[in-house]
Design a protein around this nucleic acid. Structure first.
Lengths: 146, 146
DNA sequence: TATTGTTATACTCTATAACTATA
DNA sequence: TATAGTTATAGAGTATAACAATA
């Protein structure tokens, strides 16, 4: 099969998308026997870091809309990883359970191994540049999207 | 609403995903009155660059599986942007039509405007670093996913 | 009036397995 | 046997609109 030319390769956004796609695939592989979806993992970790946060706050932190948080939280509760208590008539305080805290610790171990493997591939100053630039691009895009 | 701490922010893969997500949102906004989905646009551009390529070759170039190329190509043909001729009993050669070439030109104009806006936000040497590092990360992840 | 959580729904992309017809 | 295209189907994430209850 012939290898095609792909002018998209010179585009920043396209390279970001391609790299992200493969990194996510590796992350999913890392979680293959963990029985949690990526969005569930990130949600659990943020709740673990922020006891008594609300569902909306978590969504805000990880850029998941309120409506889409509902089934994620429901599944975490159903599996006994997160508990919630009512704060007032409309807000709920989220906390990880003991089982959830253990799961979070294991998730961090896997994530760190995954992260270390990638960091080892690039020079420290390159890593620093990338980690500095990505939030700038994100902020720029957020301005443009509005 | 309180702003939560998010330790994920230190992770390379997570920052990539967040930046990509917002950049894609802006790209979709750029295409909002263009009546083409992102995957259709990239497919059209690659066919435009590679006359008489096959469907599988395009999929290989832009990392879309054969099975998922089918409805993309079907829609491009249905809209008169791409034509195909049979090479042999199992292969089809793809070409953009005149209308497809015009559409591709317009797509490039929009993409370049989108790209220029982002590039202006970061220093040239930072841009160079990012564009050099992203393919390295992608290759690393591809090795790991296997 | 604005906010929190919720329901329902649709869209986009992705993944896999199995099939055909051809080489 | 391997390849090109196809079909069917499932999963994950995301988006919007509308609603109830509450602040």
């Amino acid at each position: 099969m012939a290898v095609l030319t792909n002018a998209l390769d010179t585009l920043l956004g396209y390279q970001l998308r391609r790299a992200t796609s493969v990194l996510m695939a590796d992350f999913v592989r890392t979680l293959s026997d963990f029985d949690m979806r990526p969005a569930e993992v990130t949600t659990l970790l943020v709740i673990d870091q922020n006891p008594d946060c609300s569902q909306s706050e978590v969504g805000e932190a990880i850029a998941i809309k309120r409506a889409n948080m509902v089934p994620i939280i429901a599944r975490l509760i159903e599996r006994g990883l997160v508990a919630r208590t009512r704060v007032d008539g409309r807000s709920l305080a989220l906390r990880v359970t003991e089982k959830g805290a253990e799961k979070a610790t294991e998730a961090w171990q896997r994530i760190n191994a995954h992260e270390t493997a990638f960091r080892s591939r690039i020079a420290p100053d390159e890593l620093a540049t990338v980690l500095r630039v990505l939030p700038l691009l994100r902020a720029a895009a957020e301005e443009m999207v509005g």
